[in-house]
Simulated assay, not measured.
Amino acid sequence: MIPEKPKGLQATPDQWKAIATRGNNLLVSASAGSGKTKVLVERILMHIQEGIDINELLVVTFTELAAKEMKERLRSKLEEAIEKSTDEVLQQRFAKQLQLIPSAMISTIHSFCMKVIRRYFYLAGIDPVFTMMDEIEGQLLQEKVWRALEEELLDQPEYEEVFATFSS
């Protein structure tokens, strides 16, 4: 059951549902400028107030800018909560969370996956000194694979029409 929205919290009914839903993972998906970052920051703050440390959460965004903005907004909200709170225990809890922000798993999906792979490379059978392929490397590899495929299949009549389509 979703609790009543606190007075003063600017959120639509759907936003409040996303903030207050508990007991399972949550995917927040909406268009740019619709308040996703605000919703996630409020959700994180509620988790903190409920006794969950920020480093126990995984918050994944699509851009580095969004992850950075979320951490900055969270820092600002925690500082504001420390100033407003009269509960010394809660103030200490918020202060502890401020210290945990740099190590919190608030990142892009790519960054999160890189951390997992770097930590567990041996389970995935990956070289521990792997690097991410950049766009140019990707284009070169694509070209290399295309040439190899072309050499292998070019002489086979059933693929002649396919190659004519792609090679023009």
Rank of each mutant, 00 (worst) to 15 (best):
L27P: 05
I52T: 14
I52C: 12
K36C: 05
G8I: 01
K68Y: 03
T12I: 14
Q142H: 10
T61W: 01
L40Q: 01
V89E: 09
T21Y: 09
E80L: 09
Q142C: 10
Y120V: 05
V162W: 12
V145I: 15
E56H: 14
Q15K: 02
E137Q: 15
V28K: 00
F121Q: 01
P102W: 07
A148L: 13
Y159W: 15
R118E: 10
Y159D: 04
D155G: 10
T21S: 14
I2G: 05
S34E: 02
A104T: 00
T63K: 01
P3Q: 10
S85G: 11
E161M: 10
D127L: 07
V89K: 10
P13Y: 10
M1D: 11
L153Y: 15
Q10G: 02
A124K: 12
R118H: 08
A11R: 01
G51V: 10
N24R: 15
S167M: 12
L90S: 01
M46C: 12
Q139P: 06
D155Y: 01
D127G: 08
Q49K: 14
F163I: 05
R119M: 06
A95C: 07
L154G: 12
L140A: 10
L123V: 06
F166E: 07
Q156P: 03
I126H: 03
I117H: 04
E161D: 13
V39P: 00
P157I: 09
P13I: 09
M114S: 02
G138V: 09
F94G: 06
G8L: 02
S85A: 15
A32H: 12
D87G: 00
A104E: 03
Q99M: 14
P13S: 15
M114V: 09
M70N: 00
D14E: 15
D53G: 10
Q10K: 14
L9H: 02
L27H: 00
A67Q: 03
A164P: 06
M46E: 11
F62D: 07
I44V: 14
L123C: 00
E135D: 15
D134S: 09
A104C: 06
M132I: 14
I52Q: 14
V129C: 12
F163V: 05
G23N: 06
H47K: 13
L57P: 01
A67S: 13
Q97D: 13
I52K: 15
L65W: 08
A66K: 00
M105E: 11
K84T: 09
Y120P: 03
Y120E: 09
S29G: 14
S34H: 07
G23Y: 01
L26R: 11
E137S: 11
I117C: 04
E4D: 15
P6M: 09
L40W: 01
V129N: 15
K5H: 03
A18S: 13
R118C: 07
K68C: 07
M1F: 09
A148C: 05
K96C: 00
A32D: 09
L140D: 07
M114K: 04
